[in-house]
Deep mutational scan, measured.
Amino acid sequence: SEFQINEQVLASWSDSRFYPAKVTAVNKDGTYTVKFYDGVVQTVKHIHVKA
């Protein structure tokens, strides 16, 4: 599913667990740039983002 900029989502971290994050960019290659609550910004594949 498509997510929008500033949408609150759950994004997987390197430990494969999902954490609350905010979408900061929707990228043309189908990835999302997300910002976790601790301030870390990461680009993740769409399969690693869920509502």
Rank of each mutant, 00 (worst) to 15 (best):
Q8A: 11
V44H: 03
F18C: 13
T24A: 06
K22N: 06
T33S: 06
S1M: 13
V26T: 04
V34R: 00
G30E: 03
A25K: 10
R17Y: 12
K28V: 10
S14N: 15
A51W: 06
K35F: 07
S14F: 11
Q8G: 07
L10A: 00
I5H: 05
V26P: 01
Y37H: 10
Q8I: 15
Q4S: 10
S14A: 11
Y32M: 07
V9L: 02
G30V: 02
W13F: 13
G30I: 00
K45N: 12
G30S: 01
D15G: 13
A21D: 01
G39F: 07
K50N: 08
E7K: 01
Y32T: 05
I5Q: 06
D29F: 01
A21E: 04
V40F: 11
Q8Y: 14
V40C: 14
T24E: 10
K50G: 06
G39R: 02
N27D: 03
K45C: 12
S16A: 11
N27P: 00
V40R: 12
H48A: 11
I47A: 11
S16Y: 05
Q42S: 11
V49F: 04
A21T: 04
A11S: 03
L10H: 06
V49T: 06
Y37L: 13
R17L: 14
D29P: 00
A11N: 02
D29Q: 00
V44M: 04
D15L: 00
V9Y: 03
L10R: 01
L10Q: 04
T43V: 12
Q42K: 15
E2T: 09
K35E: 15
N27S: 03
S1K: 14
K22G: 05
Y37K: 07
D38W: 15
K45S: 14
E7N: 05
Y19I: 08
I47S: 14
A51G: 10
A11V: 15
A51R: 13
V44R: 04
A21P: 03
T24H: 03
I5K: 07
F18G: 02
R17N: 14
A25H: 10
E7H: 03
A25I: 08
S14R: 11
D29K: 00
T31N: 05
K22E: 11
V23R: 00
D15H: 02
V34I: 09
I5D: 02
K45H: 12
N6S: 03
V34N: 00
N6A: 07
I47M: 11
Y37W: 13
S1W: 12
K45Y: 09
K28G: 14
V44Q: 02
K28E: 13
V9H: 02
P20R: 03
Q42E: 09
E2P: 09
N27V: 01
T43E: 07
D29C: 02
Q8P: 11
V44Y: 01
T24W: 01
K22V: 15
R17T: 13
E7Q: 12
Q42T: 13
V41E: 11
F36Q: 00
K45Q: 13
D38E: 04
A11E: 03
T33P: 01
E2H: 13
F36W: 07
A11L: 06
A51F: 07
F36R: 06
S1V: 14
T43S: 06
T33D: 13
H48R: 10
D38M: 06
V44L: 09
T33E: 13
Q8E: 15
Y32C: 07
K45L: 13
F36T: 02
S12R: 15
T24Q: 09
A11T: 03
A21M: 03
W13E: 06
N27Q: 02
K22C: 14
V34G: 01
E2S: 11
T43F: 06
Q4V: 09
T31P: 07
T31R: 02
T31K: 01
K22L: 15
S14C: 12
V40A: 12
Y32I: 14
G30K: 02
N6I: 07
L10I: 07
V26H: 05
A21G: 08
S16N: 14
E7Y: 01
E2M: 11
Y32D: 03
N27L: 06
A25W: 05
V40P: 08
K28T: 12
H46A: 15
V26E: 01
K50R: 12
N27I: 02
T33H: 02
V44T: 05
F36G: 01
A51C: 09
N27A: 01
V9T: 03
W13S: 12
V23W: 00
Y19R: 08
T24S: 06
T24N: 03
N6M: 05
I5E: 08
L10T: 04
L10C: 15
V41R: 00
T43N: 11
K22A: 08
V26W: 04
K50Q: 10
V40S: 15
A51K: 15
N6Q: 05
N27H: 11
Y19V: 08
K28W: 11
F3E: 05
P20L: 07
V44F: 00
V23M: 00
G30F: 04
D38T: 11
E2L: 11
V9Q: 01
F3N: 04
D38Q: 06
K28F: 10
G39V: 04
T31Y: 08
A21Q: 01
K22D: 03
P20M: 05
H46N: 13
G39A: 04
F18R: 00
A21Y: 04
N6K: 03
T31M: 03
H46Y: 09
Y32V: 12
N6V: 05
S1P: 14
L10K: 01
W13V: 12
K28R: 10
I5G: 03
Y19P: 01
V23E: 01
A11F: 02
A21W: 01
V26Y: 05
W13Y: 15
T24G: 01
Y19M: 11
F36V: 00
Y19C: 12
D29Y: 00
D15E: 09
G39Y: 07
H48I: 10
S1A: 11
T24V: 15
K28M: 11
F3W: 07
S16R: 09
S14Q: 13
T33C: 08
S1G: 12
N6D: 12
L10F: 09
G39P: 02
I47C: 12
T33M: 07
N27G: 06
E2F: 10
V41P: 04
K35P: 02
Y37D: 11
A11G: 03
W13L: 13
D38A: 04
G39E: 06
Q4N: 10
A25E: 07
V9M: 04
Q42P: 03
I5R: 04
R17Q: 13
D15K: 00
T43W: 04
G39M: 05
F18K: 00
V26L: 07
V34D: 02
N6R: 02
D38Y: 08
I47Y: 10
Y32Q: 03
D29L: 01
K50M: 11
K50L: 12
H48T: 07
V49N: 05
F3Q: 03
V9I: 09
D15R: 00
G30L: 03
W13N: 10
K22R: 12
S14P: 09
V34C: 02
G39Q: 03
K35V: 14
I47V: 10
Q8F: 12
E2N: 11
D29I: 00
D38R: 04
V41F: 08
I47Q: 13
Q42C: 14
N27M: 05
N27R: 05
P20S: 01
T43I: 12
Y32G: 02
F3I: 08
